[in-house]
Amino acid sequence: MGAGDSAGPRSLWTEGQMALLELNGVTKRFGGLTAVNNVTFNVEAGSIFGLIGPNGAGKSTLLNCLAGLTRPNAGTIHFDGHDTTGFPADKMSRLGLGRTFQIPRPFPRMTALENVAVSASFGGARLGARAVQERSLEMLEYVEFPRAPHTSAATLNAVQLKRLDLARALASRPKMLFLDEFAAGLTPSELHDIAKLLRRIRDDGTTILMVEHVMRLIMDLCDTLSVLQFGELIAHGDAATVAQDERVREAYLGPNYML
């Protein structure tokens, strides 16, 4: 479970050792544009892993490759011991990958409870009817969903939808959770609550990979950071070291960034 495989080039690609998620030379091109170029890193089980980079760096494209929305042109992706390169999103979900979306995607003509029940029924956990009910209610409580379980999803506000998205992602008991800019648009006090919640999710055994712009949250939470720029991995390591890296500060954080 050691999240402390720590910094340095050694952790970029460690032969023989099983990480939960292993990327090897992942490349995605759109016509002449190389959105993700030869990216290699591992995500250790039990850690919170941050993927950062300026707008257009290829973070979302990389996430889509990993979550099964698009197929990489080259490279391999291993998840939980399986070669999952090019697997579709539903298969990734059944293998134990949960995700939230940059803009939450609820099922609008369902109740909040039904939204969560979909993932509990068909995701990796494959629960029976009764267990689905229990698990769904439990997950709404877990993410501190502030409305009644039978509230129609169409009536929820943006922050409530984020929590619903999270409850749905967790309902399938994922081994790993992808968060795509989950903190965007949250107030400082909401940010504080979310940080607490994410730490709890990690402690309960779900590895987290987050694409994020809110630096406070990243520095607060992430054990390991990868930085993308123009589709290439320019830094990788523990959060404090990466934040000190000259190239990273220049490329992304800006010259005036203070830790």
């Binding site: 979550a67 099964g68 929305l69 579709p88 999103a89 539903d90 298969k91 979900s93 059944r94 949960g98 995700r99 979306f101 995607r105 609820p106 099922f107 979909v118 993932s119 068909f122 995701g123 990796g124 749905r168 992602a169 399938s172």
Partner: peptide, 9 residues
């Protein structure tokens, strides 16, 4: 997309 992400083929 959300249905797929929830494990539905």
């Amino acid at each position: 997309q959300a249905a797929r992400a929830s494990g539905i083929n």
